[in-house]
Amino acid sequence: MNTKLKHEQIQYIEFLSKDIVKAKNFYTECFGWKFSDYGEHYTAFEGDYVDGGFTTGTPIKGTILIVLYSKDIEASKNKVISAGGTIVKDIFSFPGGKRFQFTDLDGYEIAVWTE
């Protein structure tokens, strides 16, 4: 298990980008981020204090997706529901684990993932 993962801590951020190649070049030059491509429409990055990704799309103010890590995704989902959050994407599998997405009381969409 990755020792830098902390339960329910912001751990990953996703951006929309019209041009992933330009985004990769920009963030490599600015911050030295390292990238791993997963097909032509997604690239993940690693920085010193944050990991994230870029997916193909038109950037719109407010479209960065904050992703929390959870040691127990079912328990985290139940806490979201109990607190009044709305599940917008139920738990699904992806090549790194599982995740779900919810909106908070202000309508912000946030994701939670586990290995």
Rank of each mutant, 00 (worst) to 15 (best):
Y108K: 07
A111K: 04
P95N: 06
L105I: 15
Y38M: 13
E14K: 05
E46D: 12
K6A: 11
I64C: 12
Y108C: 07
D90C: 05
K98T: 08
G47E: 03
F45A: 01
I73P: 02
F15H: 14
Y42F: 15
V21G: 05
A83D: 12
E40P: 09
L16D: 10
D104K: 07
T86I: 13
Y38S: 09
G53Q: 06
F15S: 03
K24R: 12
D106A: 14
F35V: 02
D72S: 12
F92P: 00
G53L: 04
E8D: 07
Y27H: 08
E8R: 11
V112F: 13
P95M: 08
T55A: 10
H41L: 04
S17D: 10
F35H: 04
A23M: 10
Y38R: 10
D90K: 05
F100N: 05
I73T: 03
G84A: 06
S17V: 01
V67D: 08
K34C: 02
Y108A: 10
Y49M: 11
R99C: 06
S76Q: 08
Y42N: 02
R99E: 13
L5Y: 13
N78K: 15
A44R: 12
E109D: 01
G96K: 09
A23K: 02
S93R: 09
G62R: 08
T86F: 00
E74G: 01
F31I: 03
I91S: 05
P59K: 10
F54E: 06
I110Y: 07
D90S: 11
G85V: 07
G32H: 06
K6Y: 07
V50I: 15
L65R: 12
K6W: 00
D90N: 14
G39A: 09
Y108R: 06
I13P: 00
D72Y: 04
E8N: 15
V112S: 04
E74V: 15
D19I: 01
Y27P: 03
F15L: 11
E8M: 15
T63W: 04
K22W: 00
Y69P: 00
Y27I: 03
L5D: 05
I13C: 12
K34T: 14
T43H: 03
E40L: 05
E8T: 10
N78W: 00
G84S: 02
G84D: 05
A75T: 11
F102C: 14
Y49K: 13
Y49R: 11
I20W: 03
L16Q: 13
P95I: 08
Q9V: 14
L16I: 00
A44K: 11
K89E: 12
G84F: 07
H41G: 09
S76K: 09
F54A: 04
Y38T: 03
G84P: 03
S36K: 13
S70H: 07
I20Y: 07
L16R: 13
I81W: 06
E109L: 00
T103Y: 01
I20N: 01
R99F: 12
D19C: 02
D72R: 06
T103D: 01
I66H: 01
D104M: 05
R99N: 12
Y42H: 14
Y38I: 12
S76W: 02
